[in-house]
Design a protein around this nucleic acid. Structure first.
Lengths: 224, 224
DNA sequence: GTTGAAATTAGTACGAA
DNA sequence: TTCGTACTAATTTCAAC
């Protein structure tokens, strides 16, 4: 369950275009903002907070849900209290042309909370949540190692989770304008305060300490 | 907002003990399971699905919420459609004894979705969500680089998010018993199908390809 | 896109098992 | 503790504006 087939086709998810089927305006974003902080608000209360009528709120709410902008509603729980206090990141190197198998195997592992394909030295990052360190060990050596698609792994433990937001919205960025990140008017046409989320990507990578796919990390040390 | 002060005190979050104030039984876990998949169910429907009375469901629901097992309810949204289609991981090396400042600065960055302190070559991992690649660049070079606590960064892009679960529950593991991960009766006393979540940690790390804190990665390649 | 009124459903409080 | 029922308050739906 919970497979995500986003960013599928081309290898990058570079087209961050907005509104595939539904044009999101400021009101939509406001709705999402409220729903992020309280996923159980009644639509009536939602309408009041956003500043629209109930009927309108119902319409937009349903549209967001039907269009897939809102995937689902969920409860955020304290893993520690639920008995899974250990978090680990497992960086995986995947054997080429065995991706399909890798993904299929991963979908069978309920203890995996997150898995993403990455650039860099490794091919994928898996986040697991376990009751104790021994279980992480068992997971890596007995379960992951048994997958033929897995060539190598590297495990890192999470000592503390400093911050976790349910999701980030474009409108969040308006709050820190003019604090260290001056919007230069170049390739990012996202200067409209309400809904401007253009694409304009792939240009200024020159200054980044980029790590090419699986080529190893040199002695890169600073971002400037 | 959304700071997590779990795992604070000692540096490890090793004590995965359950029930600090509330003993979670099978019914509690069932409730969490339902709430994970549909955070907006009415308590009446919840009671029906779990198989308890409405009054009981209300009591337990409130208890889980009051005790902090359920942190909040939220909506899971499609970032791509919301205009933030680019995801990146930024691995940060933090200057010693500047952790407090690092955390304070991070709390001010709304575009940061997740931040965790890790073992391994780097000290922290930050996950950001942006409209385009250029913004990631700006984030790293202009915002993170301006934090004195940040010594070095390494950026990796996420090409595809294969899997994302709202959270993992101890009961999830029952579903894959006897498929590659034989529960050896050693340090993990979590053999009770319903609520057993012991600690028993720190023993069998010998076979793991462990990466000590910020000591660099040697030519480690396989998990066995 | 908004307001208002009816029908339904949710939330609360109690006593009994 | 948990369940069942009655009571109260709120939400959703549907209508007209």
């Amino acid at each position: 369950m919970t497979e995500m087939s986003s960013n599928s086709g081309s290898g990058g998810g570079a087209t961050g275009r907005i509104g595939i089927g539904l044009e999101l305006d400021a009101t939509h974003l406001k709705i999402l903002e409220v729903l992020r902080d309280n996923g159980r608000v009644s639509v009536s209360a939602l309408a009041e907070r956003v500043g629209i009528s109930r009927a309108n709120a119902y319409t937009r709410f349903e549209a967001l849900r039907a269009d897939g902008v809102i995937r689902r509603f969920t409860a955020e729980i304290d893993h520690q209290r639920a008995g899974l206090g250990i978090v680990a990141l497992i960086f995986v190197t995947v054997r080429q042309q065995m991706w399909r198998q890798f993904r299929a195997q991963l979908a069978q592992m309920p203890e995996v909370e997150y898995c993403a394909i990455t650039t860099g030295q490794h091919d994928a990052m898996i986040q697991v949540r376990m009751a104790d360190v021994a279980e992480v060990h068992a997971m890596v050596t007995e379960r992951l190692a048994n997958i033929p698609a897995v060539k190598a792994t590297e495990t890192v433990f999470i000592l503390d989770e400093v911050l976790r937001r349910p999701y980030v919205l474009p409108s969040d960025r308006e709050r820190d304008r003019g604090r260290g990140a001056p919007r230069r008017p170049g390739p990012s046409p996202s200067s409209d305060p309400e809904q401007g989320q253009g694409q304009g990507q792939g240009l200024p990578l020159g200054k980044m300490r980029f790590v090419g796919a699986a080529e190893g990390r040199a002695a890169l040390r600073d971002a400037t």
